[in-house]
């Protein structure tokens, strides 16, 4: 499974949101999209998910142009993991995940034994089987993210699009969720996530797409594109970038912190 976006442009009326965006993601890859707020990440995702029509350019999923695909065909190719929002009605974790199988049952029937087995397998795969009878709104933020991930898995699409999966999570849960995402990519999924944390994007991603003002600022392997200059161009923040543990991690530290008081700190 691969996703191939070429020359994607989109505008809301006069307002151009995406301008000639091109990138690819292969299977086994986790692609992180970085960029400041309001840069067009959500619009990009909505185009990829088939929720926005009327874009210019081409989006190929597994070499199929998604423009002509129906809703059910799309759902079999790409699954979406939204940010957590309180649902209008609370469902049990099991029912929540079972909804992901809907595209595989006919409109007038309800998911059966086969779909329920898939749900159990997905819950066990992500280590949240013990939560199956709990209410979705009654579990922790990290657990909710895993439930939404399980819902995407039972949809049996090989491309997963995740909207800031680690936002609103504590540090431990962020890493736990990212580890799961990474291991899913290793199992053959193609995963696209948006994130606001460059350090985590560097540690976990296979490819990074850096976006500014609807355009691609940089695209490639994180080791190739992560520089102090990139962070400055993205966020307008001067940083010192430190490579750690044989370049397994690159940490960005705001310059103001390491420079201004450094002599004073050294003396005291």
């Amino acid at each position: 499974m691969s996703i191939d976006v070429s020359n994607l442009s989109f505008s809301y009326g006069e307002n151009q949101v995406l301008d000639q965006v091109s990138f690819t993601a292969q299977d086994n890859q986790l692609l992180s999209v970085l960029g400041p707020n309001g840069v067009g990440k959500t619009t990009l995702f909505r185009c990829i998910l088939g929720l926005l029509k009327g874009y210019k350019g081409q989006i190929l999923v597994d070499e199929i142009d998604i423009e002509g695909l129906g809703i059910a065909e799309m759902a079999k190719l790409i699954a979406y993991i939204p940010q957590f929002h309180y649902p209008s009605f609370n469902y049990s974790v099991f029912d929540m995940v079972l909804m992901g199988t809907s595209v595989h049952v006919s409109a007038i029937s309800t998911p059966g034994k086969k779909q329920k087995r898939h749900v159990e397998a997905a819950l066990k795969r992500l280590g949240i089987y013990h939560l199956k009878d709990r209410g979705f709104t009654k579990i922790s933020g990290g657990e909710r993210q895993l439930v939404l991930l399980a819902r995407a898995l039972v949809q049996q699409a090989k491309v997963l699009v995740m909207d800031e999966p680690t936002s609103n999570l504590d540090f431990g849960n962020q890493i736990r969720v990212l580890m799961e995402i990474k291991s899913l990519a290793r199992e053959g999924y193609t995963i696209i996530q948006s994130t606001h944390n460059p350090d985590q994007a560097f540690m976990f991603s296979d490819k990074v797409l850096a976006m500014k003002d609807g355009e691609v600022l940089a695209w490639g392997r994180p080791a190739d594109i992560f520089t102090e200059e990139l962070i400055y161009n993205l966020y307008g923040m001067e940083v010192k970038m430190e490579s750690l543990y044989y370049d397994q991690a690159r940490v960005s530290i705001p310059k103001g912190i390491v420079e201004k008081d450094s002599i004073y700190r050294f003396c005291s």
């Binding site: 909505r46 469902y91 029912d95 909804m99």
Partner: peptide, 15 residues
């Protein structure tokens, strides 16, 4: 059930 999740989410689930 799927519709209670919102239109966009339902759509990405094939509904």
């Amino acid at each position: 059930n799927v519709l209670t999740m919102g239109d966009d989410e339902a759509r990405t689930m094939g509904i």
